[in-house]
Nucleic acid binder design. Structure first.
Lengths: 294, 294
DNA sequence: AATTTCAATAGCGAAATGCAATCAATCAGG
DNA sequence: CCTGATTGATTGCATTTCGCTATTGAAATT
């Protein structure tokens, strides 16, 4: 039953029987019969298909919600039993927005101190991908904006609020100012994150409110790329203060606070709501609460 | 997986492999290996046993919570899929405290009007048994006190509040009074529910507060027995007004309100919390809300 | 029209499931 | 300390299920 549901989730996610089968490590016929059996077992057609995947039926969409719940709970159950034997250990998969990657490191560092046997996988993703991955049980938790995207049944733990700063080459005239306004950046050659990132949309919003049309000459999905461009000279970028400090350290770069950057966005841990949580996730949420206080 | 969990739940409930196997319609060896496989699969011992059932291990107790969740959700899932095909139909199992049986009838009558294809099983049980049966998934919902026993993760819908009245033979001198006090009942030959019933404990409490030691000469677990005794003469009983009216109708009995019976207890529908509910249960909760307004 | 893509189906060996029969350990009573 | 009853584990065997390879059939693409 549970493994059939996993198959169903995989097909719904991939939209393709062959790829879904591959992702599960089974052959396509196995997955085909699995779905068929699930449908017969439930007495409902879940997937439209006539020699090709044709989307979920309405019942299939409802079933997907249950399937995720059941599979997620079954994994949490196994996890809890495993932990009760081997102590807090195993693998914690985290998806993190690029601007929060330094905080992810802080979080995992502190966590590892307390629970050295836990391994981490940390993936850089945009916030909407993080939600999708949480839904599909591809990661255990996310580090993302808590106050922006609509989060369904999720547990959250705030960690910090983003404050934006300008990062420019030390030779840039702006580097001499004690602070700048969004309007000051009108003519600058900007280097920003790609628009699929929540962070970029927030910055766009700030420019809009200052009646400035920003000129993003370079777009990237990694803050490292932004900083590297700024170091080359000719470009400037906008980063949360923490990330700005991390990337500019030891380089010929300047950090200038941006006035009127009053829009503060809360970043924190996001995990599927489940009662009780897995022991590792529980420990992680505790750790996040500690970081928030600090 | 799911069926192994069902086995585990059955063993935990029965405290006996043979009986658990019988209750599931499998043989004892099948169940024995089922439990063993579950334990191997999870890597944890769930049940103490050496040629005899010896209770759950600590891990077993934790696992039981998950097992109930998973099995309950799996059933709710199946139910929802079934309903999406055959419309609102099937079997609704209800456990009801004896004093609320007339309300159970009201509830099922109204429900049947709206959803004629749903069959009912209504069992009379005391309130603590109702909670146990809900936990073990033996019933879908209960009709019981909402304000007394500690209910864990449950959905509730209030329906009415109990008000106690004296029921006595019409020839009894008390029948002439417009109302009586708890103290007035001191010398009467009382016929009450057994002490395992919450209702009886509430009545004991009322007597205690009036400094009266009640004299329950007949105890029964059915209100019908109480009324029948009262009709025979010589006994009096105490019943919620609605039940009193129902049982005394057409008989030579009198109903007298009891003064100072200010302790009102809320009775309503109780069902395991689950998101979303099964469609039938959802409809039942709606129906209960309707009854409450009426 | 030829080719490619994609899911369903057939056939087969391996693994699992579930039963009846049996065994081993424990308990109650004499 | 023995004896019969209880209770769960074990064994052996038939049946079913599972998952693979190979193939087919139907659309989509060229």
């Amino acid at each position: 039953m549970i493994n059939k549901l996993e198959m169903f989730i995989a097909v719904a996610k991939e939209g393709h029987f062959g790829r879904a089968a591959e992702s599960l490590g089974v052959t396509q016929p196995t997955l085909s019969t699995g779905i068929k059996q699930l449908e017969e077992n439930l007495g409902v057609q879940l997937i439209f298909r006539g020699s090709r995947y044709g989307g979920l039926t309405p019942e299939g969409a409802r079933a997907l919600v249950w399937a995720r719940r059941l599979v997620g709970d079954a994994r949490a159950f196994r996890e809890e039993m495993r932990v009760s034997r081997h102590g807090l250990s195993g693998h914690l998969r985290l998806a993190v927005i690029p601007t929060a990657l330094t905080w992810a490191a802080k979080l995992s560092a502190r966590f590892a101190e307390a629970h050295p046997k836990v391994r981490f996988t940390i993936l850089s993703r945009n916030s909407s991908d993080i939600l999708k991955m949480l839904e599909n049980l591809e990661v255990d938790a996310g580090l993302s904006y808590l106050d922006n995207e609509p989060l369904g049944r999720m547990t959250t733990a705030p960690i910090y609020t983003e404050r934006y700063t300008l990062v420019c080459h030390a030779d840039n005239p702006l580097a001499l100012q004690s602070q700048v306004t969004w309007a000051d950046l009108a003519g600058e050659r900007l280097c920003l994150l790609t628009p699929d990132m929540q962070n970029r949309r927030i910055i766009n919003q700030c420019f809009m409110e200052a009646d400035v049309t920003p000129d993003a000459l370079v777009e990237a999905n990694s803050t490292l790329v932004l900083a590297a461009h700024v170091e080359q000279g000719g470009w400037v970028t906008i980063l949360p203060s923490d990330m700005a400090r991390f990337l500019s350290a030891g380089k010929h770069l300047a950090i200038v606070p941006i006035m009127g950057a009053h829009v503060e966005h809360i970043v924190g841990l996001v995990a599927p709501f489940r009662e009780p949580h897995t022991p590792v996730l529980d420990a992680l949420l505790t750790q996040a609460a500690g970081l928030n206080r600090a």
